[in-house]
Design a protein around this nucleic acid. Structure first.
Length: 294
DNA sequence: TCGCAGGGACTCG
DNA sequence: CGAGTCCCTGCG
């Protein structure tokens, strides 16, 4: 991998990127704020910055970014230091379906996203489909988030702060963002975070188990939502979120198609895949959901 | 036009 | 624990 300053200094070019493909990364259910452009590039907001990212073969162009931002923000965000080739090789040896899943989502990366943003995003995600989640989060940011700037004629907003959300009435949030009965969870969680009843910054230093238990103290956070936060924000790659798609996949792969409680499936995944559980989950999820295998 | 499916957390037996 | 309920959207 090699990093270069592109043309005008507002873009960074990276060559020799392996195991990386934007649609696999952005369409696998881990993030909600990246929009595909007509030319196949994506524009999104993270850490208060607008990034326009474009890929040509093994070349990555980060528009609207400095080299400094690349190193401090985007390199960790896209998990670029990790050798996914090794992970894919190990998982491919597990079984035929996993091998196909890895081949299908070959360019997937587990993003390292902001803990607060993931917390609220996955509370909103509970019991809803991808498009509805995206819509609600866009509305939430436009209504309560700080204006960041304009890019190619489009205005962009940061993810709203806990201090702002805690002051809203659940009814208003509900009407504005279409999150339904989840709105009190958003306000309740925002209150707990803003009042220091939970310290999001120190969660990463806890064990996966302890961090999970902490997260589940928050309203609207159950086992599945907690596991998503562990995986997508806290770098706990041994977490194994079980949603309906993973449930179907696991039951068919390892439980002879028999109905099995999510808790048991989660434990099985964690034990079988260990430190790679989260990666296995992502490849599987993308594959079975996209192709509707089961 | 409408009824139904889809999707997790919470509450109550 | 298991069953029922919560809400919105898209689809047939």
């Amino acid at each position: 991998m090699e990093i270069r300053d592109a043309e005008q200094g507002s873009a960074v070019k990276i060559v020799g990127v392996k195991d990386f493909y934007l649609p696999h990364i952005f369409e696998c259910g881990q993030c909600f704020r990246w929009n595909r452009q007509e030319d196949g590039s994506y524009i999104g907001v993270a850490k208060g910055k607008i990034l326009h990212i474009e890929q040509r073969e093994d070349e990555l162009i980060l528009h609207n970014s400095s080299i400094d931002d690349f190193h401090t923000i985007w390199m960790p965000y896209f998990d670029l230091a990790r050798d996914y080739g090794r992970i894919k090789k190990i998982l491919s040896q597990e079984n035929e379906i996993l091998k196909e899943a890895v081949a299908y989502g070959w360019g997937m990366r587990i993003l390292k996203q902001d803990i607060w943003e993931m917390l609220i995003s996955f509370i909103i995600s509970a019991n809803r489909s991808m498009r509805m989640i995206q819509k609600s989060i866009t509305l939430l940011c436009e209504k309560y988030g700080e204006y960041i700037g304009i890019y190619q004629g489009q205005r962009y907003y940061d993810f709203p702060k806990a201090e702002v959300l805690m002051r809203q009435s659940p009814e208003t949030i509900r009407n504005v963002t279409r999150v339904g009965y989840r709105s009190p969870y958003i306000v309740g969680t925002a209150k707990m975070v803003a009042e220091g009843k939970i310290d999001l910054c120190q969660l990463e230093s806890l064990s996966t188990k302890d961090a999970r238990r902490e997260l589940m103290r928050l309203p609207g956070v159950g086992p599945k939502v907690a596991d998503c936060i562990l995986l997508f924000a806290l770098g706990k790659q041994d977490a194994f979120p079980v949603d309906v798609w993973i449930r179907r996949a696991m039951e068919n792969l390892y439980f002879a198609g028999k109905e099995t409680p999510p808790k048991q499936l989660c434990r099985y995944g964690e034990e079988k895949f260990g430190d790679l559980a989260g990666f296995a989950q992502q490849y599987l999820f993308y594959y079975v959901r996209d192709l509707k295998v089961w």
